Amino acid sequence: MFNKKKSVPRVVIDQFSSLISGNLSLVGDMEFEEGLKVSGAIRGNVCHKPGTHSLLALSADGRIEGNVSSYDALIDGTIIGDLVVEHLLELHSNARVCGNIRYRQLSMENGAIVDGTLNRMGDDEEAGQVFELPQPQAREG
């Protein structure tokens, strides 16, 4: 009765339509749809095409220096920049993120490191929406 484990959502990997292999370094912004696997290095923003169910997989040797967005993401490498994931984010044990993360669902393994804030998106929020807190007003006294 108490032994039942809650099912954890997982991303299904069928195939990747694009690959940045380990021997490739790319400088510049890029937009992708469907599946993108990164084993090399990218210096620039990596964004999915809005409205698509994209999957980004960053291998343990992969590195992205720039802001990243995807529908689903499997991160096992390094991101230096902000990360926005509209659906499911999996941070594997080698994941290193130096930046703020916004996600809807999160799975994080032991060993993953985040140097920034983790912010969960609500069901009615848009992925790219940013909320700012009002600045405190000085009190006269």
Rank of each mutant, 00 (worst) to 15 (best):
F2C: 15
P134H: 11
R10G: 01
S107Y: 09
L74W: 12
S70E: 11
G44M: 02
S7N: 14
E126I: 13
E125V: 07
G51H: 03
S18R: 00
L74C: 02
L56K: 00
N100Q: 06
G128I: 07
R102F: 04
M1P: 09
D14I: 10
G81I: 12
G77E: 08
D76S: 08
G22Q: 03
L58N: 02
H53V: 10
A95L: 04
T78K: 13
R10E: 15
R43C: 09
C98R: 15
V8A: 07
S18N: 05
R102D: 04
G35T: 05
I20Y: 01
H87Y: 03
S70G: 00
Q129K: 12
M108Y: 08
R139D: 14
R120T: 07
G116N: 03
H92E: 14
V130R: 06
Q137P: 04
S18M: 05
S54W: 00
N67I: 11
N94Q: 13
V85S: 10
L83V: 12
K4I: 14
K6I: 09
D76M: 06
G28V: 04
A73S: 11
I64P: 11
G128Y: 06
E140C: 09
S21M: 09
G116F: 06
D76Y: 09
H53K: 15
Q15R: 15
I64E: 00
A41L: 13
E90T: 14
E90F: 06
G22H: 03
I20K: 10
S25G: 09
M108T: 11
P9I: 01
S69I: 05
P136H: 03
G116I: 08
V84Y: 01
Q137C: 04
D82N: 12
L74V: 02
C47T: 14
H48P: 00
A60I: 08
V12A: 15
G40A: 02
N45H: 11
S93Y: 08
I20A: 07
G116L: 02
R96A: 07
R10S: 15
N67W: 02
V12F: 13
C47D: 11
N94M: 08
V97K: 07
K49Y: 05
A95E: 05
F131L: 07
